[in-house]
């Protein structure tokens, strides 16, 4: 039988429940394991193959004319986190495990250049 206020028991039940949201930034949620956030790049492992730049779907990873520490003839990649979608394809494509995704998710900066991982 239909009646108004059918949800009242549910409403009362919710009174004792804590809010779902938290007061960020004073209170922070623990990031999940294996979350994809800021990129960590190890220049000493990179061989300059450029697969990361070729596979990047958003153009966040690109090769620059800086000689690669391992092979001087090759270039090195830069990662512009302004454009990054954090899909982790570069991490997956890298044959030498030079790219890792950390759980550092707070990436707000005052200057644009600070968001480029070199």
């Amino acid at each position: 039988m239909a009646r108004a206020g059918y949800m009242i028991p549910m409403l009362l039940g919710k009174l004792t429940k804590k809010p779902v949201t938290v007061m960020y930034p004073y209170e922070k949620l623990e990031p999940f394991k294996d979350i994809r956030a800021k990129i960590k790049f190890d220049t000493n492992l990179c061989i300059g193959c450029g697969i990361c730049a070729r596979d990047c779907p958003s153009g966040a990873c690109y090769m620059v004319d800086i000689p690669n520490p391992v092979d001087k003839k090759k270039k090195t990649p830069h990662f512009d986190l302004d454009m990054c979608t954090f899909c982790g394809q570069c991490d997956e494509s890298c044959p030498k495990d030079a790219i890792k995704l950390t759980d550092e998710y707070e990436l707000a900066h005052f200057k644009r250049g600070e968001l480029i991982v070199k």
């Binding site: 409403l11 999940f32 394991k33 294996d34 994809r36 979608t85 982790g88 394809q89």
Partner: peptide, 29 residues
């Protein structure tokens, strides 16, 4: 809107599960 708030609250259960499983809430990659 009460229904809207409550159903989205319960939706967080599945969203959290998707995040644990895939690494992201919406575009899972």
């Amino acid at each position: 809107d009460t229904l809207f708030m409550y159903s989205w609250d319960d939706r967080e259960i599945v969203q959290d599960l998707l995040e644990i499983m895939t690494g992201n809430r919406v575009n899972y990659a």
